[in-house]
């Protein structure tokens, strides 16, 4: 019997193929843009995992993006190595910070959590501004980039951003399709009922936070390799979260595909309308408002309604019943229910 291949793995394979082909078909400017696209999409996917799937609306996400960037600079410069291996540290340190802050973050809910995490990002920015070890207001330069031949920088920057994006997307899909994802989605609908079903929601929230911040940190690290310099104001900028929310809302919050389509629309708008100056922001704002009011499921929700397709399905479906197996429900004492 031929087993049907899950759409999600087909889509992941297609994404991998597209990412591999891009350097062959894009110009230098196109590759720069594609690198930024990968970074921004990875961050949007990670934020959507938090806000869309577990209800953790973390407006302070720039804290972890900036921490990823700063970690990469500090580690690579200190060790005197090319920056790329330091992306791993750029993922690890934000995850550790998230773990350390989690007792405080999870004492807050809803708007309090949103504002509280924003304040944390601001505090991180101010701390960096007054700390000479991280370059204070002037920030840091990526000295070790000179170890990478100039001709290789652009393709390597893209390659690592693409790897981070692919890992982010795959990790999120695999996570959501697993038992963990089942608990996560249950928790999104009802914390109390999820607990009553045996889901330890505090652990699910913590693991989700750590995963999302590690992925965002890695993406941030990739971004700041391309910028050669990092400053507190850029690293912890609220622009990061503004763009992320715009992409996630536009594409469709709470679906894996949503941020992908949101990012495509965002970059199409930006690349075609940014010459309009303030007009571009007005159009973007109006679009966001329109989508929020008339299309709460986002662009992906509309596409899905029209052509009934699941590119990255995460739901568990009732499968064909296995005949010949006696189904039993036994309680903890081994009694037949």
């Amino acid at each position: 019997m031929i087993k049907r291949i899950d759409n999600a793995y087909v889509t992941l394979f297609a994404v991998a193929v597209v990412l591999c082909l891009l350097p062959l078909v894009l110009s230098k400017a196109g590759l720069v843009l594609a690198t930024e696209f990968c970074v921004v999409l990875a961050i949007a996917l990670a934020w959507n995992l938090l806000a869309g799937f577990s209800g953790i609306v973390l407006i302070g996400m720039p804290l972890f993006i900036g921490a990823g960037g700063y970690t990469l600079y500090l580690v690579a410069n200190a060790l005197g190595i090319p920056p790329y291996p330091a992306i791993l540290a750029g993922a690890a340190v934000p995850a550790v910070i998230a773990y350390a802050l989690s007792p405080l973050l999870f004492r807050l809910e809803g708007a309090q959590l949103a504002i509280g995490s924003w304040v944390m990002a601001e505090v991180a920015r101010l701390l960096c501004l007054i700390t000479p070890a991280v370059g204070a207001g002037g920030g840091l330069n990526l000295e070790v980039l000179r170890l990478v031949p100039r001709s290789l920088r652009l393709p390597l920057n893209f390659a690592f951003a693409a790897i981070v994006l692919f890992i982010t997307l795959s990790a999120i899909v695999i996570l959501l399709k697993s038992r963990f994802g089942l608990g996560l989605r249950a928790m999104r609908d009802s914390d109390a009922a999820a607990e009553a079903m045996g889901v330890k929601t505090s652990r699910v929230k913590l693991l989700t936070l750590i995963t999302a911040t590690a992925l965002s940190g890695a993406a941030g690290a990739c971004y700041y390799i391309t910028s050669i310099q990092i400053t507190p104001s850029s690293a912890f900028s609220q622009n990061w979260i503004a763009i992320t929310i715009f992409i996630v809302i536009l594409g469709g919050i709470g679906s894996v595909e949503g941020p992908i389509f949101g990012a495509i629309v965002y970059y199409l708008l930006r690349e075609t309308l940014s010459d309009l100056g303030p007009g571009y922001f007005v159009i973007s704002g109006l679009l966001a408002i329109t989508v929020t009011i008339f299309l709460p499921e986002g662009v992906w929700g509309l596409i899905k309604r029209l052509i009934r397709i699941d590119l990255l399905p995460i739901a568990h479906h009732e499968a064909r019943r296995v005949h010949g197996t006696q189904p039993t429900i036994t309680d903890k004492k081994g009694k037949l229910a």
């Binding site: 089942l182 989605r185 249950a186 999104r188 009802s190 009732e318």
Partner: peptide
């Protein structure tokens, strides 16, 4: 071994009936 229902049903509304049960079977 303690199973419970809620006075106001707290189904996992965005999940299917099958998935609602699967959560309990896989976790508790």
């Amino acid at each position: 071994g303690i199973g419970r229902t809620f006075q106001v049903p707290q189904s996992f509304s965005d999940m299917t009936v099958y998935e609602n049960l699967l959560v309990g079977a896989r976790y508790a």
